[in-house]
């Protein structure tokens, strides 16, 4: 079965005073229909830029390379008008901070219905009814009253539900959620994640879940791609990536996670700071922070190679083997 979205060798460069800066450097992944696809990595790894590239919302001065095929069309090669029709109707996006992502001076009704009316050509009454249905669907208490409200009158969790409702309005086939729970209280996070999971099942909606928190993905995602410094470090089915991480970086992320069954386990942080696009190390960008680094890692960029169990990894050193040997 062909995947809903197939990204191949995606590149993003940002023009700066000192020449083009590579932000995303050859990223490939597939997202299947009705699947939750996790895109993980620290801040600055290029995950948000990857998502913005798919929607054509990159900042001015950015250029892209590669292809992103969705329903037989290349998202990166679309004309402006075609791309605009894709937004909201094919792909919707929910942003990290629901407070700053909703317009503070427009009613919820306005923000929920304006693209319904523009994109789907609904009348005011139809759009209103559909908006109420959407708010009900995201478990918004008293949808009719909420429609008349403004964003500042709601809590962070409620605002995020509104953002999701806005995203779902035109029945997209793919929803990109960029750190949808990061700005929220821990107690509220679970509710939002459950909501995403349910929508995914009921509507056969594909979700790209962008997060730095592998813990979130382990419960939700069908497959995971881990990015570091604009490149894919490791990707594969969730059970494989989480259960038997092979890339040193993935392992590092997992070791840094608290584990519910072993609360006393010592958390091991990854040493050093994430590589920024301005000062990306040579060779494997992770080598300065890597426990298993060899001299060759400083020279050659390791290719992404398939491993027999259906995943891919970009590291010549196999920490899994190494740790067994130790």
């Amino acid at each position: 079965m062909t995947p809903l979205l197939s990204v191949r060798d995606l590149h993003v460069w940002l023009d700066t005073a000192r020449g083009p800066l590579s932000i995303v450097d050859g990223v490939s992944f597939d997202v299947g229909e009705g699947q939750v696809f996790g895109l993980a990595g620290e801040s600055g790894s290029g995950k948000t830029i990857t998502a913005l590239a798919l929607l054509g919302l990159l900042p001015a001065g950015a250029r892209t390379g590669g292809v992103a095929i969705m329903a037989g069309r290349d998202l990166l090669a679309m004309r402006t008008s075609e791309r605009r029709r894709t937004r909201g109707r094919e792909i919707a996006m929910v942003f990290q901070d629901p407070t700053s992502s909703l317009h503070p001076m427009l009613t919820i009704e306005r923000q929920l219905t304006e693209h319904l009316r523009y994109q789907l050509g609904l009348s005011g009454k139809e759009a209103h009814l559909r908006a109420v249905a959407l708010l009900t669907e995201v478990r918004m208490p008293d949808p009719e009253a909420a429609m008349r409200g403004y964003p500042h009158q709601f809590s962070g969790g409620m605002r995020q539900r509104i953002q999701i409702a806005i995203g779902l309005a035109c029945e997209p086939r793919l929803l990109i959620a960029d750190e949808p729970t990061t700005a929220l209280d821990v107690t509220v996070q679970a509710g939002i994640l459950r909501l995403l999971r349910r929508l995914c099942k009921e509507k056969n909606l594909a979700v790209i879940l962008i997060t730095h928190d592998l813990g979130v993905l382990s419960a939700l995602a069908d497959s995971i791609t881990v990015m570091y410094a604009g490149r894919v470090a490791e990707s594969g089915p969730t059970s494989q990536v989480m259960g038997h991480a092979r890339h040193p970086y993935t392992r590092g992320l997992i070791d840094a996670l608290p584990h519910p069954e072993a609360p006393d386990r010592v958390l091991i942080p990854i040493a050093g700071d994430p590589a920024s696009p301005e000062s990306r190390p040579s060779g494997c960008a992770f080598h300065p922070r890597c426990r298993y680094s060899r001299p060759s890692c400083q020279i050659a960029i390791p290719p992404l190679i398939p491993i027999d169990d259906g995943r891919e990894m970009a590291c010549p050193v196999d920490p899994f083997m190494a740790s067994v040997a130790r």
Partner: peptide
């Protein structure tokens, strides 16, 4: 961020500028 949200909804640039940006 909300300007990006408006664009992500697929609204035409005119609507984004005159309804969302100018209002704010």
């Amino acid at each position: 961020d909300y300007v990006r949200t408006a664009r992500a909804k697929g609204l035409p640039e005119v609507t984004v500028v005159f309804r969302h940006v100018l209002r704010a």
